[in-house]
Nucleic acid binder design. Structure first.
Lengths: 335, 335
DNA sequence: TAGTCGAACTAGAACGATCTAGATGAACAT
DNA sequence: ATGTTCATCTAGATCGTTCTAGTTCGACTA
């Protein structure tokens, strides 16, 4: 068949249009300094040859790469939502996103190095697992924005969701429905699990209620396990670490003939795809991925364009009330 | 605080070590041609300075970039599984993966161009939506491998899963359990929906059974809708387009008091995370993401390293039998 | 002793863009 | 006629690598 052909360069276009390379560069970038007539001629030639600028050369030469490095994990569906939104926000601000995934045999450190190597002007790391030291190290050469985690030291920016407020909303909602026996199934070792657990404890105590934490994890199976434990001594409401855990909890309840929300109310966290399903209709705390992504991109761009000192942006989540929460059942209002 | 510092270059390392740039380049690449003693000296200097090669410059200069471009969609969890596996396979073969996502306002064409611009030596596109013409156009400059779609013309490679075989396995399994009234809820306009639908038709006819297709789609809600339709005239078994659709179908059955697998058997497709959940235990056709990814990467590398003509690899899926399929209920074996 | 060889190393030209500084020439003022 | 200005265009340096074609020098051969 046809053999692979070399891609055209600036030089090729310049020759075809009968001008210098520099002028072609000017036209392709849309920079001022070219007569309209020649501009057209050059664009025509470029189009005929199917010319596209080689980003390696472009990025190498220009000090500004206009590239934002984004590291995410393939294992987290929520990250995909953020990636999606980040693309939109970045291109609105005139930046490109370059991705690097944390995958099975590919640690976060590797993902970050890759981003740096291609010339990213800033790093956005979703739920970084790196230590504060390592993050600070990278922050010496490029602005670093931590997304979904805020205990990242002085050197790096953070954009996170206010877990304290999110949990408070959940508790508040339940209390206003008359619940007092409210349990929290935590996220085990997952990122933000501790934050939410402590927020729950504080909030319960603040209201004169006794905190009651059951160990869990970020997956459906973890929720299942916790649900089975709870069946022995049923609370009137459960606040799960996330939606997937909530799903597991609900499944285990359903299997035991416990009905939701008649017998027990359940609240999830993330307002994910699952929560919205018509047969789930899970009341959930929404962190709003698009908003978080926009804030992270905004922060990164600000830092690139001059803002000196890192700061932390905290977005307040909101509660999406659906069908898994209702008034507390009667005769169960003891402490 | 400390201001952003320029990253060290080959030149810096060369000066620090008291050798030429070329020598440092040799050492950093692990190429032969440097005495062990100087090699150590250079590595030491590089380490002290925190030197990392700038991949833009490296890729620009070397004809071989050893880069595989991978385009995926943020909306498909299954793609994430493939990305994960592709990383592992690529690095085993000495290649790097560069990602580009198809996201909300970011069409596939854009994702592909980005990959080309950074110098990918081959393109792996997961479930391409581009026309055969456009794919062929790109294939003129670089090998293109289509993953999960096989009607892509002569110019591009394809790695796909044998839908025909997968559906046949599903039908076979059900027939062996005594089912005759087997319905297929299709995937609507989704990729491979048509393949599976036609495979189902052919397979049913081949066995002297009458095909029965209900329109559906790739999501849970689509399954729900189809499930509701089916309740009026219940089949003994359902083959869903994918796991998510199967989940929706099962939910709608459960809500109507129809029990699975006692009254109806259900088979999904993808053997996703959901199918494996302990409270789902969905019998499902597995396409085996790691195997598909490995085949695609292998194909891409083969083409890069000399294989002239594109070909298509078809992997045979396998059926994972769990708890949603059982013997057909008695007295329901009419046509 | 001179010649050959190979290992270790280096200078300088790529790669394909952008950027700086300057050339060119038409239009206008003096 | 001369100088000034401005828009338009270009030559050549540059980004940080890799690659090509040497050079250098000690060891070995004849």
């Amino acid at each position: 068949m046809s053999e692979l052909q070399r891609r055209p360069t600036l030089m090729d276009v310049a020759e075809a249009a009968g001008v210098s390379r520099a002028l072609v560069s000017i036209v392709m970038r849309g920079a001022p300094g070219a007569a309209e007539s020649t501009r057209q001629k050059v664009l025509q030639a470029a189009n005929d040859l199917g010319y596209r600028a080689d980003s390696r050369a472009r990025l190498l030469r220009s000090s500004r790469t206009k590239l934002l490095g984004l590291s995410f994990s393939t294992a987290q569906p929520f990250h995909a939502e953020i990636v999606d939104a980040a693309y939109a926000e970045a291109s609105a601000k005139g930046y490109e996103i370059t991705l690097s995934a944390v995958a099975n045999g590919r640690p976060e450190a590797r993902a970050i190095e890759t981003l740096l190597d291609v010339g990213a002007e800033a790093l956005i790391v979703i739920a970084p697992t790196l230590g504060v030291e390592d993050l600070a190290l990278h922050a010496r050469s490029v602005p670093v924005v931590s997304l979904l985690r805020d205990d990242v030291g002085q050197a790096v920016d953070s954009v996170s969701s206010d877990d304290q407020a999110g949990i408070a909303m959940a508790v508040d909602h339940l209390v206003s429905l008359g619940h007092r026996r409210i349990v929290h199934v935590d996220g085990g070792t997952a990122v933000s699990s501790e934050n939410r657990r402590e927020a729950y404890r504080a909030e319960m105590i603040r209201r004169g209620l006794t905190p009651w934490v059951v160990p869990g994890g970020p997956g459906e199976e973890d929720g299942m396990d916790a649900g089975r434990i709870l069946q022995a001594d049923l609370p009137t409401a459960v606040i799960a670490f996330n939606d997937r855990s909530a799903l597991g909890i609900m499944e285990s309840f359903k299997a035991a003939g416990i009905s939701i929300p008649a017998n027990v109310s359940v609240i999830g966290y993330d307002d994910s795809h699952f929560a919205k399903l018509s047969y789930v209709q899970l009341t959930s705390v929404s962190q709003d991925a698009p908003l978080l992504a926009a804030a992270a991109v905004g922060r990164a761009v600000d830092r690139i364009e001059g803002a000196k000192s890192p700061g932390s942006v905290v977005r307040t989540p909101h509660l999406v009330i659906r069908k898994t929460t209702a008034r507390a059942p009667e005769g169960n209002s003891d402490t």
